[in-house]
Amino acid sequence: MEEQPVLELDRVSVVYESSAGPVRAVSDVSLKVYPGTIMGLIGESGCGKSTLGNAIMRLLRGNARLAEGTIRVMSTDVYALSPRELRTFRWNTMSMVFQSAMTALNPVMTVEQQIVDTLKSHRPHLSTRAARERARELLHMVRIDEKHLRSYPHELSGGMRQRVVIAIAIALEPSLVIMDEPTTALDVVVQRSILQQIQELQAEQGFAILFISHDFSLVAELARQVAVMYAGRIVEVADAKSLHLDVAHHPYTEGLLRAIPRLTHEDVEIEGIPGQPPDLLDLPNGCAYAPRCPYVAPICSSHQPELHPHPNGLAACHRFHPTEGGAPGWPSPAPLSKWTT
C-alpha cells in the first residue's frame, strides 16, 4: 500500500494569455510529494517554477490560468474548492513562503498583529490572548526575540523578516509548505542559517516542503528528491544523492551540474550551457532542450520525450529509452525501481 502523497500534480499546464498568444509557462507537469519529505524544484529563471508554485496555491493572477490537469493537496482538488473553502484550506493545509522576504510583510502592522491576523482569520474563536501567546511561541520557534513582536517590518533585517514569514507560514501547522526561493534576497551567511532553520522546523513539525530554487547545490543538500524543470516541463526527477556527474542524467541536468563552481576541485572547469533558453511563445517541436543538447539525435526534434525511469529516477530524454526510436549506442534503460509515478 503506497503512502498517500501530500501534493499530487497530474498533467498540470499553466497558460499566460499574452497579446502575442498563449504562453505555456508550465506544461504537462506531473509530480508527487510525500508527507514529511522535501522535494526540490529547480530550474533557471523563467522556466515556470514559480508559476507552478503559485498554481498550487491557486494564486495565479491576471492573465495566468490553470489550463489543464489537476492539483491535489492532501487528496483535495485545489481548483474544485469554492472561494470560501479555498480561504480556509490555504494555510490550514498548505502554505507558502514567498521569494520576497523584504516585501512580504505589511509595512504598517507590527509582527505580532500580522501573526495574530493569520491565526484569527482561521480561528475566529481564538482569544486575542491565546493568539498572542501562539505568536510568541512561533517567534521562539524561528529564533527571534519576543521583543520583536512589537517591531514593524522595517525595523527588522532581511533574515529576520524571512523568519517571520516562515513563522506565519507554519502558524497553522500545514501539511505542505511551498517555499519559493526563500533565501534568494539574503546574503550567504543568513541564507545558511535560514536553511538550517527550515530543516529543523521540518524535522520537528513533519510538514512536506516543495522547495523552489535556482541554486542547484543548495537544493541538492536540502532535498531528498529534486525535480528539474526546463521550459515549463519537468525533465528529470532524481534522487538528490545522485546529483553528480558520475552517473548519467538528463542532458540539461548534466549541464547544470557542470556549471556548479567547486572550490575543492581545482582542475574541474566550470562550463555554462551553450545557447539560450527557448522562447515559450515559439517552442521547438520535440524536445525543448534539443537545440542546446550535446546528445541530440534526429528523433529529438520531432518527438516530445516522456518522463521514463532511468537508473536514478525519471528523465524525459530519448537517450534513456531508445525503444521509442532513439539513436543506437545509448545505454539501455535500467530496470524499473521505486520511481513509478
Binding site: R90, N92, L105, D117, A171
Partner: peptide, 26 residues
C-alpha cells in the same frame, strides 16, 4: 499588487480586512 497583499490573501485574511487593513491602509 504588492507582495504583502498577495501574502495576506494567501494566509487567509478576510477580503474586507484585506482590502482595508492591508491594501487601503498603505
Amino acid at each position: 499588487g504588492e507582495d504583502y497583499v498577495v501574502f495576506a490573501e494567501a494566509k487567509g485574511v478576510r477580503p474586507s480586512r484585506l482590502m482595508l487593513m492591508y491594501a487601503a491602509r498603505n
